[in-house]
Design a protein around this nucleic acid. Structure first.
Lengths: 199, 199
DNA sequence: GACTCGAAGTGAGTGGCACTTACTTGCTGT
DNA sequence: ACAGCAAGTAAGTGCCACTCACTTCGAGTC
């Protein structure tokens, strides 16, 4: 990954390079404060070059968001599988994982949700997002006793998602002053997981 | 509120007119798809006129967000006071109110949270937001038996906020396909309220 | 190994935007 | 009547997204 002006006329893999550059820019300047021009400048190409690989700005942003979704899914999958001990541990781990992703990559996290209008028009974003949610459903199913209908799995999973999604956004937006320690957050997660999964 | 080109040189109340025009534009074009220039055009003034009333674009956006927060607080206050019957009714009403606001004013709702970076720098947004949350805490305190410490009131209120905030955003972002009817949503709210408030 | 053809660059535009500056208008208080 | 100031204007700056006509160069063919 070169940041200095390249010597060759052709870049090699400008597409991937741009996605990574935009990802960094989004974290540096905020989800609504970066420009494609600057990304091109950093990649050492002209401001017209990106449009050989993407139809417009939105397509680049969606590519960055998509990569973020995949990254989060991998982290969630790993966290859930690594969590042991308490039967609720995998579910708690998923929640902490979600919140941690939002904290470490707030710019990309914001891109993944909202901000851009044409998200629902991209079927790939939808399917990869669903793959994320599938991890949650898998762990919910594993926790609940046999005999719970799919609809109830879905409902509990959605409750968990609502909760942790709100938590993540309220946190990165600084909308609550109660600054929690890691243990306090873990306890909160545990409390919520218990309340949602019991019965 | 005139939308046609005015005849007088001086507008009268351009500041308020711009806030309202931007509010409409935000709903029409999305939170990141409107421009101050267009708002000025609609108000029938030059594109430099807004800067006689606001220092920059962000200040206009914050004014629109602030008005939204106040509007939501009023609705929440009214909804909580109107809810009777079930002791959990006011809390459920608050949740439905929050979700309804997000649905009817998704653009402004998005402005109220995230999107703009310099939100935490505006103390007024913070205090008015806190006033909103105070309504929640008031109802939580009214529900819980005597003797709960303030910290626990805060904790339960925050749980409710997390949940309903996530719900609102996931809904307006179209991130879940389970399209609920009004009754289903009310039942979900009731279930969550019960799970969070019990014990 | 020369040739050609297309993918991936360039540079120079276009129009829109946020915001500034110097100037003008007309309401308000004395 | 008039001075002064709040609130407007027109013109201009620099950045942006995006386009177009052109150039470069590497890969496949003969």
């Amino acid at each position: 990954m070169e940041t200095f002006p390249r010597t060759q006329y052709h870049h090699g893999d400008l597409r991937a390079h741009l996605i990574e550059t935009v990802r960094i820019l989004v974290e540096e300047k905020g989800a609504d404060g970066f420009s494609i021009s600057e990304a091109a400048r950093r990649a050492g190409v002209s401001s017209a070059a990106p449009y050989k690989h993407f139809s417009d700005r939105g397509e680049i942003v969606r590519a960055v968001a998509l990569a973020g979704i995949d990254r989060m899914r991998d982290q969630m999958d790993a966290a859930a599988k690594a969590a042991t001990g308490n039967p609720l541990a995998p579910i708690m781990a998923l929640g902490l994982c979600y919140a941690n992703f939002a904290r470490t990559e707030p710019g990309v996290f914001r891109l993944m949700f909202g901000l851009t209008k044409d998200h629902d028009e991209d079927p790939e974003l939808q399917t990869h997002g669903d793959a994320c949610f599938d991890v949650v459903k898998r762990e919910v199913r594993a926790f609940l006793a046999e005999g719970y209908p799919d609809q109830e799995i879905e409902r509990r999973s959605y409750m968990l998602h609502m909760f942790v999604h709100g938590h993540a956004f309220l946190e990165i937006d600084g909308k609550h002053d109660l600054d929690m320690s890691e243990e306090q957050e873990a306890m909160l997660m545990a409390d919520i997981a218990r309340r949602i999964m019991q019965d």
